[in-house]
Simulated scan of single mutants.
Amino acid sequence: MTASDHDGLLAEQLLRLTRRVHRIQKRHLERRDLGITPAQSRLLRTLAHYGSPPRMADLAARLEVVPRAVTTLVDGLEAAGKVRRVPDPANRRVIRIELTDDGRTALRELRAARRSAAEEILAPLTETQRGALGALLDTLVDGAAVEPGGPERPDRPERPDGPERP
């Protein structure tokens, strides 16, 4: 097997694992019956990491989506009482997005669902294997932290020694 064949196999394994992770997380979210889509979940996690409420354009840039996509997500979350639009105190024409108490509660539930999904996914691994996997994934994520021509990627997964990042 050539290096190129081996890399292709690894890429396919990573894609299959990603799809499995998404399926399992979705199942764990559905069990909690939060009525939040995976995209809305990502927006809530991202929103939680701002010191002050961000603008929708800030969220769009951070999530690497078009602003219209953020508007749609915010509309749904606002209708569900998870976020609210607030005027910027320095410029009343600017609207910022902040979490509500219901949004913070949903975020705690989302984190619990992600943890239980992670436990299911990682169950076959020993603690040593989990540590090795974490180190390898950190290497891959850090290597992709700045993509050529792209913005810096602040979205990092939750680590045992720090807060969850979107």
Rank of each mutant, 00 (worst) to 15 (best):
L77W: 07
R68I: 07
L44V: 05
P54L: 06
R68K: 13
P67T: 04
P87N: 10
Q40P: 02
D58S: 12
P54C: 03
R45M: 13
E64F: 07
T46R: 13
L63C: 05
T71Y: 12
A80N: 10
P53T: 02
L43S: 03
A61M: 11
A79T: 08
A57S: 12
G81M: 11
V65G: 01
H49W: 04
A79H: 10
V86M: 09
R68W: 09
T71V: 11
V86Y: 11
P87C: 08
A69H: 14
D88N: 14
S41V: 00
G51V: 01
P87T: 05
G81Y: 11
R85C: 03
A80Y: 10
L47H: 07
T46Q: 13
V74R: 12
V83A: 12
R62L: 01
V83K: 06
V65I: 13
L63S: 00
L47Y: 05
G76P: 01
L77T: 09
Q40V: 01
E78L: 02
P53L: 06
L59T: 01
A60Y: 08
M56A: 09
D88L: 04
A69S: 14
A48I: 05
P53E: 00
G76H: 14
A69Y: 09
R62K: 10
P53H: 08
V70Q: 06
R68T: 07
L47N: 05
L59Q: 03
L63Y: 06
A80H: 12
R62N: 09
V66G: 09
Q40H: 12
P87I: 07
L47P: 01
T71P: 01
R85D: 00
